[in-house]
Design a binder for these strands. Structure first.
Length: 723
DNA sequence: AGCACGCCGACT
DNA sequence: GTCGGCGTGCTC
């Protein structure tokens, strides 16, 4: 009779022991079905302890041990254990998040992908021809050579069929992908000297852990560097993990990877991938069959037995941080995982996060630079338009209007960037004080004139636009401010001959809509694009030569200390859209603060100067990355209950907090009300990550014991992005 | 989180 | 007299 220690998907910071006659160490990492309280749950065996702290008589037996699926590997369990420790969440919740739902239920995994057609690789043919000491593996190899490509299920019935996994592991055989086009042996782009040096540097230490911060402006050829490094890893028989930001709407990198490695087994993991395919990809990766896993933050949890390289593209992107549930940072976990598996890690960005920048400064990461634009001729020129003394027409300055007119004449594309969708951010009554406040949030409902709706962009509240003021009956309600729809409307009136295309979350409702829009833009069916931040990323538009930025100043007023960093990153990114190919690009930024250092750095496109300045400010103010933070937040139907909880949470440890730990006072969150709940937060800070972690462990122990009023919910966020 | 138990208020 | 409110406590 053995004891199994099980992680269950419940918000209790413990593991649970069960008895199980048949379990052995081979079963660590396997799913089990167990009775838990009144109900049944699926968990994962994380250990096989010799004895339990629980009275043996109280141990319930495991209901079912699922042996149909291979066990999760030890390093994967270690990763989930680390996430549980670092982010202070129960390991069972981490596992529930990391494991595809189908797998946790251990349904029969679809055979379409698990029964691949197997064939010899060149290495396999070589091994076969060379002969060597007879073994099961070589015997099976000879059979397969004679029989030609064979389904795995068939091969398994052969005398030495069990050696199949061994052959796959040695990369003597591979899964033939039916839809593979013939390998395009087209000429690879010529590398610049810089690219060559970067690749050599990383490749020189391919055998162990090393973190690289690859800094290169848009068009400097970061992707080509990734591809060459991937190529080398694959040639060495290793798997590669590539993380991309949550704009999985852009299939761009995926296409380039697929195009470059047509023979590789590539697993894509993003929000557009259905559960079934996700499970199959997970299993293929775990079995060592997949060569490349390309996905958004969740992909960091893919088990990869032959892992040889991790790439994090656009490492500064905030979408690597999960903002609910288990609040992990996939970028930070990538560093941990690379160290754990002793493989190199490449963090790429044109505008690195200040956290990574600091790590590079401290020598924890090796900085690599790509300064030359590999593709286009020049960087775009950036012009700041001082809007303080000029009259704007439809939100546009004369200079921007003139620039747009010139592009129309030259039949080039323009992009107007306005990070505010809808027609106007608020509807107001000039006669009284009424505004279109959301009934559930401390935010205003946005006017969507197209479908005559008022919508809250935070909670989704949706009503029709009233015909008269609900307060005073005035029929003349005025939309205030300007969103993408209104900007579009003004442009249509001003440039009636131009083809104007709005690209925001309303226009690109689904992946399908978005791909259609992209296709139209590429086909040259638009002269002026009006877009939100979804236009900032990915995609190069060859005829795009003008980017106009409207309403950038908001970030300068923002209370969030990271707002300027984000603005700079976004501006650099959106500016990078302009003038690729042979056409020179121009970026016009309308601002009331043309002298602001941020805009000055932007004009010179001097990322280093901006980073130095921003870091100096952060150090002065004692903000991250010079200090480490955690945020305890609570919400309840009534603000006072949330504040009350946080006060008690603070009181339960305040007197025991070691020196160097700063506990702030509980305060209402910036957006206090969200979806009928009122929210408050309590910040903890320390100059030492270890000290903060030690404090958090003790605090969490006490918090779980602290009684919670029934309608209060709380959570801990380690390394929060929004403070 | 669920789901029990348990102890006080207004209802057939 | 019961149905049911939600405070408290436990789940191997």
């Amino acid at each position: 009779m053995s004891i199994v220690r099980v992680a269950l998907p419940v918000p209790i910071p413990q593991l649970f022991d069960y008895s199980c006659d048949s379990a052995t160490h081979e079963d660590i990492g396997r799913c089990v079905r167990v009775n838990f309280g009144r109900r049944q749950e699926t968990g994962v065996i994380v250990d096989l302890p010799t004895e339990s702290d629980i009275d043996p008589a109280r141990l319930k037996p495991v209901e079912h041990l699922l042996r149909e699926v291979p066990p999760l590997p030890g390093d994967w369990l270690a990763l989930t254990a680390f996430v549980a420790r670092y982010y202070h969440v129960p390991q069972g919740e981490v596992i529930a998040l990391a494991l595809p739902p189908d797998l946790r239920r251990a349904d029969e995994v679809d055979d379409r992908d698990t029964d691949p057609l197997l064939a010899l690789t060149p290495a396999g043919r070589q091994a076969h021809d060379e002969g060597g000491r007879p073994s099961k593996a070589r015997h099976l190899l000879a059979q397969l050579q004679a029989a030609g490509p064979t389904r795995k299920s068939v091969l398994r019935t052969w005398p030495e069929g069990t050696a199949c996994a061994d052959l796959l592991r040695r990369r003597w055989i591979y899964a033939v992908r039916p839809q593979n086009p013939a390998r395009t042996a087209g000429a690879l782009p010529t590398l610049t000297d810089e690219q060559g040096q970067v690749i050599d540097t990383v490749a020189a230490h391919a055998g162990g852990f090393a973190a690289y911060l690859l800094q290169g402006v848009t068009g400097a050829g970061k992707t080509e560097v990734y591809l060459r490094l991937i190529e080398r890893a694959l040639a060495a028989g290793r798997q590669v993990l590539v993380l991309v930001p949550e704009i999985a709407l852009t299939p761009q990198l995926e296409q380039r990877v697929v195009g470059r490695f047509p023979d590789a087994d590539i697993v894509a993991l993003h929000s557009g991938v259905a559960d079934g395919a996700r499970s199959r990809g997970f299993v293929r990766a775990m079995k060592g069959e997949a060569d490349i896993v390309l996905g958004t933050r969740l992909a960091i949890f893919t088990p990869l037995p032959r892992l040889g390289l991790i790439v994090v593209d656009e490492e500064h992107d905030p979408s690597y941080k999960q903002q609910e549930g288990v609040r992990y940072s996939a970028r930070d976990l990538a560093v941990w995982r690379a160290r754990q598996r002793e493989v190199p890690l490449v963090l790429g960005s044109a505008t690195p996060s200040l956290e990574s920048w600091r790590h590079a400064e401290q020598g924890r990461y090796t900085r690599l630079r790509l300064t030359q634009r590999a593709i286009a001729t020049h960087l775009p020129t950036v012009r700041l338009i001082d809007t303080r003394r000029i009259k704007l027409e439809d939100g546009l300055s004369p200079a921007l209007i003139k620039a747009l007119g010139e592009r129309l004449e030259r039949r080039e594309q323009s992009l107007l960037f306005l990070n505010r969708r809808g027609y106007a951010p608020v509807l107001s009554c000039p006669a009284c004080d009424w505004i279109s406040a959301c009934p559930h949030c401390s935010a205003n409902c946005v006017v969507h004139l197209k479908d005559r709706r008022l919508r809250c962009h935070h909670c989704g509240h949706d009503t029709s636009i009233p015909h008269a003021c609900p307060e005073c009956g005035n029929q003349d309600l005025k939309p205030l401010g300007r969103g993408t729809q209104k900007l579009e409307e003004g442009l249509v009136a001003r440039f009636p001959e131009a083809r104007i295309l709005r690209v925001d979350r309303d226009a690109a409702r689904s992946r399908k809509h978005w791909l259609e829009l992209l296709a139209r833009i590429h086909a040259g069916e638009a002269d002026i694009l009006v877009g939100t931040q979804m236009m900032a990323k990915g995609h190069d538009f060859p005829r795009l030569t003008l980017v106009g930025v409207i309403g950038a100043d908001g970030a300068l007023y923002a209370a969030d200390f990271r707002a300027p960093e984000r603005l700079f990153q976004q501006m650099m990114q959106v500016g990078g859209r302009a003038g690729r190919a042979a056409l020179a690009g121009e970026v016009l930024i309308q601002t009331e603060f043309p002298d602001h250092p941020l805009f000055q750095c932007l004009q010179r496109q001097d990322t280093d100067a901006f980073a130095r300045m921003a870091l100096a400010e952060r150090e002065e103010a004692n903000f991250p990355p010079f200090t480490f933070q955690a945020m305890l937040s609570a919400d309840a139907p009534v603000l006072d209950d949330a504040l009350d909880f946080l006060t008690r949470a603070s009181d339960c440890i305040r007197s025991d907090a070691p020196g160097g730990i700063f506990l702030y006072d509980p305060v209402p969150m910036r957006m206090t009300r969200l979806a009928r709940r009122e929210r408050a937060q309590l910040l903890v800070e320390s100059a030492s990550r270890a000290a903060l972690q030690g404090f958090l462990s003790e605090w969490m122990r006490r918090l779980y014991r602290l009684g919670t009023a029934r309608d209060v919910r709380w959570r801990m966020d380690v390394d929060p992005l929004d403070v």
